[in-house]
Write a protein that binds this DNA or RNA. Structure first.
Lengths: 256, 256
DNA sequence: CTGTTATTTTAAGCTATTTTTAAGAAAGAA
DNA sequence: TTCTTTCTTAAAAATAGCTTAAAATAACAG
């Protein structure tokens, strides 16, 4: 969604908006649409879910009975499946078992009125990943769907500052599309500065958090490392300076 | 626990039992013990959980407040964490956020009396993987714990990394069409690296999960085994290097 | 049970990289 | 100017990781 309030200097005519939207979508090429299958025999609930999830940007397929559900699930490659427990044709439990037999690993969420502990345990043991009791609220379902998808996609932890991206999982740093190779100390200094972007980091802060030194010590090691970082992040001196000196206080990084 | 009912042809005298137990433990070398951290201030619930989970074969640590919990969680490498919402020192939510900031991916289950949908959503968005409302039944908790652990370890028996294929059933490893014969330790080290592909594995991670050593120990055994693996996976030095060193941090494997 | 082989661990030297120290140059403030 | 703070550079010190070889341990066959 484009938040025009944050760009007061830009205004869109209704005609232009769709184009801009698709441009943004193209740019986020990694944010692909997630496919969800709902297997539920109560039309009311099914439609409610389908509409709600589509509104949230998911691509939703739907089956009203177990057989049909299994067929769809085996043909297509869904990112997540929502099964009702009581279904004509093939029960949710059986459906889940058959699905797992196909060697599919996509997360399955049970959505059911059966709520004894035995039912829950039974459902989870059949290969489900979560189990929500009816009546449920849509927001909770949505949050649980997001958790399942997040866990699976193995998303990486990224810290960003302007055109800098630090990947904490791979320990790699990019400025724009170019990788900058940092040593461990350089990496953790930059990490500290970016985590505290917008705030001045004093030398004491830095020496405590990055070097783990908790007593007064006069060393110029911070200056040296700031220098290392500046050189590696901006070797030609032509790019934008990212680490600013606040004389007498410390250093700061900020977005903009 | 030994289920004598499933072995009707064997009977144990009380004296023999302990010996047999340890023998069985040794035999299941691949079924490593799962470590769980409980952070809960109500002594009663905490003890109930600890006892119950230990009976199920988990190794359980416990903290009564948020600070202590975070400390334990950052030092040790747990396979799963259970947080109460209301905690002295640092709330469960804050604890969870701080934990995720440490770049840890182990599943977190919230266990709490707060049960409005907003609470659930809030908890899940803070990085939790599941949310169980008090009062809960132990069996449901156990089932949900198993689901989290199962999802993580993945039931798949075929692991792939570039042109490497590990078959966990047959315990054989191929690079392209050629088999590479690995010793047990080499195998489980490679398995760990591939299961965590795309993420840096620290020496601590490796020594804890592959060697099952949970105290500080200075040993160069990891270096030696990385060397073994590299030689066996790439004896001529002409193939693509698959295990990359992140100096000062650990090792990483990635597809591509 | 015993000798043989395979596996795992320890230890140590070596090298390249990383970290720290130190001191003069440059820049800002008074 | 003069004083203080920060920047820059070079060289020394420390360390992490690689490689070997040998010792310790475990597994196995006869």
């Amino acid at each position: 969604m484009i938040d025009t309030e944050k760009m007061p200097f830009i205004s869109f005519s209704d005609e232009v908006l769709p184009k801009v939207k698709s441009y943004i979508t193209e740019e986020n090429e990694f944010e692909q649409v997630m496919r969800i299958l709902i297997v539920e025999d109560e039309k009311g609930i099914a439609n409610f879910l389908k509409d709600g999830l589509e509104e949230e940007g998911f691509a939703v397929d739907f089956a009203a009975d177990g057989r049909k559900g299994l067929e769809l699930a085996s043909v297509n490659d869904y990112d997540l499946l929502i099964f009702d427990w009581m279904l004509p044709g093939l029960s949710g439990i059986e459906l889940c078992r058959e699905f797992r037999k196909l060697n599919k690993t996509a997360p399955v969420i049970f959505l059911t009125a059966r709520d004894t502990v035995q039912d829950v345990v039974f459902g989870l043991e059949a290969g489900a990943n979560d189990y929500i009791k009816k009546p449920f609220e849509f927001d909770e379902l949505l949050a649980r769907i997001r958790v399942q998808l997040k866990t699976r996609s193995g998303e990486q932890t990224l810290l960003k500052l302007c055109d800098i991206e630090m990947n904490l999982d791979t320990h790699r740093v990019f400025r724009g599309s170019k990788e900058r190779e940092l040593t461990p100390k350089e990496f953790s200094l930059l990490e500290y500065l970016i985590r505290n972007k917008g705030k001045v980091c004093t030398r004491t802060n830095i020496i405590e958090h990055v070097w783990d030194i908790h007593f007064n010590s006069d060393t110029s090691v911070i200056d040296v490392y700031i220098n290392f970082l500046r050189k590696k992040l901006n070797p030609t001196g032509k790019e934008k300076e990212l680490i600013h000196t606040i004389r007498g206080v410390g250093y700061i990084t900020r977005d903009e």
